[in-house]
């Protein structure tokens, strides 16, 4: 399907987006989704697998589907295969098996047509240290043959301003801090209007202020209709920013859903703070509270559908001294650990 320039997006094509829009955690996304112009998911992988020459399977039959207009958080511990997946998405490395589709076209076959519409930041910033920030931007833009040389300098200026580097544009990258390099890497991705941004750990090395700025920037870009695919291990970032998330563990995709869905699955737990641990445990077991865990000062478990006021009354009746009583909602981190079966240790 080809549009004549100037024609507004076809309502027929965007209609399909209604489905993805409603999945978004925020109401505004439904509207921004329509700017994505097509209902095709910008990132699709089928059975994507990468086996390194060492025999190690870094990515193991991953089926990703990133809805248009979403801010998609790609999570996983270090070494879980996130960056390898991203490299395959962008055609930097060849999959051992499986397929990648970016913006509806097969990768890496269609990379020359697709990648100009994709802004990418892969595994940390990489620049010519002996050149200025601006010169670096100009070089990477010159490598893209669809980029207009007449507007190159102006676009570089805008991109630098957007990431707050205007004052450092003429400084050699050698003298940049890690945070500044990270900003410059984001500026490379912003040199052109993109339909998709693939950002690998975009806030790595940034101070809290910088992290906040990048978050705002990502929201702004998403509002303009750009789909954002961002890998991160900062769960707070995901909670604040993302509409969708996928979790990788040991090369496998263990979960993929909307944030709203992920949150709703985090079932609250009953936590009783008491010196009478044994008695409390017995009482709660008797009442049908599942998955009980006893720590030094607390007993906690899954109350299921049991009314908690009844539970409190039962504990009091059983002469359990209650120092604290309530429901606690587990954090995303707990869910993450439950999914990956590990903390942030490097996967084997």
């Amino acid at each position: 399907m080809t549009l004549t320039p100037g024609t507004p997006g076809p309502t027929g094509a965007t209609g399909a987006l209604g489905a993805t829009g409603t999945l978004g955690a925020t109401g505004t996304l439904g509207a921004t989704g329509t700017l994505g112009a097509t209902g095709t998911p910008p990132v699709v992988t089928r059975g994507l697998t990468k086996r390194f020459r060492s025999g190690q399977v870094a990515v193991d039959s991953v089926d990703l589907e990133v809805p248009a207009g979403s801010i998609f958080g790609f999570l996983g511990p270090n070494g879980s295969g996130k960056t390898t997946t991203i490299r395959m998405l962008l055609g930097l490395i060849a999959p051992t098996s499986g397929e990648v589709e970016l913006l509806g076209q097969p990768m890496p076959k269609a990379q020359l047509a697709v990648l100009p519409r994709v802004g990418a930041l892969v595994e940390g910033p990489a620049f010519y240290p002996f050149w200025t920030g601006q010169a670096n931007l100009l070089r990477f833009d010159a490598a893209d043959r669809t980029a207009d040389p007449r507007t190159r300098k102006a676009r570089a200026g805008e991109a630098l301003e957007r990431v707050g580097l205007s004052n450092a544009a003429g400084k050699k990258v050698r003298n940049y801090s890690l945070g500044m390099k990270q900003r410059l890497a984001i500026a490379v991705a912003l040199m052109q209007q993109r339909d998709l941004l693939v950002l690998d750990e975009p806030t790595n090395g940034l101070d809290p202020q910088g992290t906040r700025e990048v978050r705002l920037l990502i929201r702004e870009l998403a509002k303009d209709g750009t789909t954002i695919f961002t890998s991160t291990h900062l769960l707070a970032e995901v909670e604040q920013l993302c509409t969708h998330a996928a979790v990788m563990s040991r090369g496998k995709l263990v979960r993929q859903s909307t944030m709203a869905e992920l949150r709703s699955e985090l079932r609250p737990r009953l936590v009783v703070r008491t010196p009478d641990l044994q008695q409390a445990e017995q009482t709660l077991t008797g009442l049908g509270v599942a998955d009980l865990k006893v720590t030094e000062e607390t007993v906690d478990g899954d109350p299921g559908e049991l009314p908690i006021d009844k539970l409190a009354a039962a504990l009091v009746a059983a002469d359990v001294r209650i120092h604290g009583f309530g429901l606690e909602r587990p954090s995303l981190e707990d869910a993450f650990v439950a999914l990956t079966g590990e903390g942030f240790d490097v996967a084997e």
Partner: peptide
């Protein structure tokens, strides 16, 4: 598929020389 963003872009292959100069 083409969208409005791409329509506003110069066609591919137009600025091949830029990389050589760079």
């Amino acid at each position: 598929m083409t969208d409005s963003v791409e329509a506003g872009r110069p066609s591919a292959g137009r600025h091949t020389v830029a990389l050589f100069a760079s």
